[in-house]
Design a binder for these strands. Structure first.
Lengths: 296, 296
DNA sequence: CAGATTCTTTGCATAATTGCAAATCATGGA
DNA sequence: TCCATGATTTGCAATTATGCAAAGAATCTG
């Protein structure tokens, strides 16, 4: 099956005639006719009914139309990117985000933003949930906090719910439900002993931490691997089929998710575009982020 | 731009040579060469670097690859639907993979496999580079090892190169080049003190580990955040624009990447399909995995 | 109804593409 | 270093695809 024959059949679908398609494709109409005839022969399927309305796609012709449109989208997107014609907005936006957001929430949104604005390079600076590892300047920060500080301005997009999770494997071996003291725990590294989670584990299950990690992704991986229970963000835990949730969202861990930028960057077109896009994208995820039962 | 030329360029991406692509496409190699040359001329962009590794896609070549794969998915899906051959294969394939492969290498291939075989569910069990966290059974394992063990059989697909990386921010503050003893290090957690990397850091820079992690992803994130230098897989470090490579691929860390399965699963159609697909997909990434200078 | 217009289908000549074979290049092994 | 092997690049002839023009069919208008 020749891919370019699919393109020709698509043009026939759209024009409703061979000569119309030929004009659009800048081919001789005889060529269009022959290529369609060859395609129908190779597939051994009639793609069009020929009648007073001209060429009308059969059911198979409709299937072909959908596939060919997807191919056209991919090819045209490639053409625009390679020719540099799709570069209205340019520049770099530096985004600082926590690792669980960077890995669990942002990739599809960043991919979509990239499609919309291929001229904008997003530099993602991953920082740890459990520590503020760097003082690097970022144009935009996605922060789990309860209020913006300093010269940062922004908008609160969602509540981030946290809950207790454990893997099905682990639970098969440790069927203790919500009896936290009997569980083994994947806990924050000791340098983060001041966090709410660390305090929770020390209070509820002293000396039951069997593994410690310094990133939420690390704890997530270890929890999923069956080492122990952990308190994870609901949007991370609920999306992982290996995990079961053992508690409702715990209010003592709740915090807001803010999209922040520097006051003086708000007018920059690329930053504006990014902020607008990310705000809308993350808001569309807010029930998932909150971890309400509807999304469990 | 001819759609069928994109298909040819995709075959070159995968085979890494003109003659390899010609064999797959059942074309004469001279035809492949000319069609590529014509495509590069029409786009006025170089799509491949030609070197000792064969044909290696440029950035534009990678763009083309993605678009062509999407087109291929649409075309193949159409072919199957029109021929009634769709949905032959069903079932579950459980894949065990190391976290750096799971996060850095596999997602596009798994997405592609899903397109080809929507009836097959792939369950991904992520395990840590640095520890074998679980004894769960997997149908297929992607392992960085030097020989298969036990009842596992498989094929060696690539060399995985490891090298020293550090972020540009870190290097601006610590311009010590290859003087390892003066660097600060992101190192494996102490429970993994037996690994080649841990021994390397103890030998080259005793007591200079400023942060430890129990996953390669965690070390990667910390290295990228500017905490210190780290030994990372080349396919992870080279693809991260925040990182600079401070060494060539280090032979003492080199290991093979094997695609393994149980002897008794080799005949299962879904596993066979998965193995065949993944072997070809990962082979096409082999120069990236090896971390040769051409891809740095 | 006849004529004009448009579309589809076909035959032939021309142009473009492809395969074949050879020359050239690069790499690995003895 | 030489030889073998495989890959890339090039020239020529053969094959295939395409355009041109004409024949045939369908529809519309006066």
């Amino acid at each position: 099956m020749e891919w370019d024959d699919l393109r020709i059949a698509l043009a026939i679908c759209r024009a409703g005639s061979l000569s119309g398609a030929a004009r659009v494709l800048k081919l001789n109409h005889a060529t269009v006719w022959r290529r369609l005839k060859a395609l129908e022969a190779s597939l051994d399927i009639r793609l069009f009914e020929r009648g007073p309305e001209g060429y009308v796609p059969t059911a198979a012709g409709d299937e072909l139309r959908r596939a060919a449109e997807a191919m056209e989208g991919a090819a045209d997107g490639l053409d625009r990117r390679l020719s540099g014609r799709d570069a209205r907005l340019t520049g770099t936006v530096r985004l600082s985000a926590l690792d669980s957001f960077a890995l669990g929430l942002l990739p599809p949104h960043l991919a979509r933003f990239r499609q919309l604005h291929p001229g904008i390079t997003v530099e993602l600076a991953i920082s740890s949930t459990l520590a503020n590892l760097t003082r690097r300047d970022a144009d935009v920060a996605l922060r789990a906090t309860n209020a913006p500080t300093g010269s940062l301005v922004g908008q609160r997009l969602a509540e981030v719910g946290m809950a207790v999770y454990a893997s099905h494997d682990y639970l098969a071996r440790n069927p203790f439900g919500t009896d936290w003291a009997r569980h083994e725990w994947v806990a924050p590294d000791e340098i983060f002993a001041h966090t709410a989670f660390a305090k929770f584990v020390e209070r509820e299950a002293p000396r039951r931490s069997v593994l410690r990690a310094d990133t939420e992704s690390g704890m997530h991986a270890a929890c999923a691997a069956g080492i122990g229970a952990a308190v994870l963000a609901c949007f991370v835990g609920d999306d992982d089929p290996r995990l079961a949730r053992l508690s409702p969202a715990l209010p003592e861990f709740d915090h807001g998710l803010w999209l922040l930028t520097h006051e003086d960057l708000r007018g920059a077109a690329r930053v504006r575009a990014f902020l607008d896009f990310m705000a809308q994208a993350i808001r569309s995820d807010r029930s998932r982020l909150k971890g309400t039962p509807a999304s469990a």
